[in-house]
């Protein structure tokens, strides 16, 4: 009886994995055909090999340039979702709360506050993208460290982490608003782009910072899957099974914070993906982290890439580029409402 159930679970994992991988590839390929310029990609294979050999210059063929743009954009969108899918899974496990999302650690608003402050203080330095990305990243991590420090003072439990995150997040949220008011340049809406995210302007050189930490995160999480599984049932349970819960928390939170900070600084704040991907993954394969660690990033990647494709279609119709984070939230809110109602009903 048990074996039947268990192997059924394994089969579901394998099928889901294959399905998601095929879906990812299909979505990615179709994303190459979607964008504001209607172009004919009949020579796509030839063009693809050219692109990966030669990334610096402007190509003779305008279609090659557009293809290049779409590829870098698609990769950025996918791996943002990939990173957030894993970060969301880990934060939900660490806080034992299926409604948690990576931004409850307070890093989105602290990132915003730091960027606003530095634009206010050093406007001439902040026009360079690299500086902005760096400050956004450091700002996010600062918020994270303050949250963790505060939570340790409050006992270090998962509840303490959530409450500290809320406190820190609100504080920096207030600071950001104040700073935005002070910055006041009518046209300074970089902050808005940080708030709502875009995959369009991610540079090729920034992609490795999105990809490598995500993959490293998946590998490390898989290595500690037992600690994560045990952790779900409580600190006491985890400890008596041989896994000090503090270690599990530390490793997970480090991975979560780095991945989230990277996505915020390179792409911006993309809501909902960190919350929804683990949910959908659990719906597919249950709670065993062996399966969810592998699948949740894929779900996140698919969702985000799909949203980015929607952004391109809407922008084509509407005439102006809408931010990615807005679309993910719009798709997300009804889904979230559905989840909350379903959960409360039970």
């Amino acid at each position: 009886m048990a074996e039947k159930i268990y192997y059924k679970g394994v089969k579901r994992f394998v099928f889901s994995l294959i399905f998601l991988m095929i879906l990812s590839i299909t979505l990615f390929i179709s994303s190459l055909f979607i964008g504001s310029s209607s172009i004919n990609l009949y020579k796509i294979v030839h063009m693809l090999s050219n692109i990966f050999l030669n990334k610096n210059s402007l190509y003779n063929d305008p279609m090659m340039n557009i293809l290049d743009l779409r590829i870098s954009r698609g990769i950025a969108a996918y791996f943002t979702g990939f990173a957030l899918g894993l970060a969301g899974l880990l934060i939900q496990t660490v806080t034992r709360n299926p409604l948690a999302d990576p931004y409850i650690l307070g890093l989105s608003t602290s990132s915003l506050a730091f960027v606003s402050l530095s634009i206010l203080l050093f406007p001439d330095i902040m026009i360079f993208r690299w500086n902005l990305v760096l400050i956004a990243f450091l700002g996010a991590l600062t918020g994270f460290f303050i949250t963790i420090g505060l939570s340790k003072l409050a006992g270090g439990s998962s509840v303490a982490i959530v409450l500290s995150g809320i406190a820190v997040g609100s504080f920096f949220g207030g600071v950001s608003h104040l700073l935005l008011y002070l910055v006041q340049a009518r046209y300074n809406i970089y902050i808005m782009y940080l708030l709502t995210g875009t995959a369009q302007t991610v540079l090729w050189r920034e992609l490795p910072y999105l990809i490598y930490p995500s993959i490293a995160g998946v590998i490390i999480s898989l290595l500690i899957y037992k600690m994560l599984n045990a952790y779900l049932y409580g600190d006491i349970y985890s400890r008596q099974l041989g896994f000090p819960p503090g270690v599990t928390r530390t490793i997970s939170l480090v991975i979560t914070s780095i991945l989230t900070a990277v996505t915020i600084s390179i792409v911006g704040i993309i809501g909902f993906i960190g919350l929804a991907s683990p949910h959908i993954t659990r719906f597919l394969v249950g709670n065993d982290h062996r399966f969810t660690i592998v699948l949740s990033p894929l779900v996140g990647g698919v969702l985000t890439l799909f949203s980015d494709i929607s952004v391109r279609i809407i922008s084509y119709a509407y005439g102006a580029e809408l931010p990615l984070g807005v679309i993910t939230m719009m798709i997300g809110s009804p889904f979230l409402a559905f989840l909350i109602i379903k959960r409360l009903r039970e």
């Binding site: 610096n56 340049a185 369009q200």
Partner: peptide, 14 residues
């Protein structure tokens, strides 16, 4: 700022 930090770097990359 979006010209400076978002669009110009990407256009120059191309």
């Amino acid at each position: 700022s979006v010209h400076e930090s978002l669009y110009a770097p990407k256009l120059e990359e191309r």
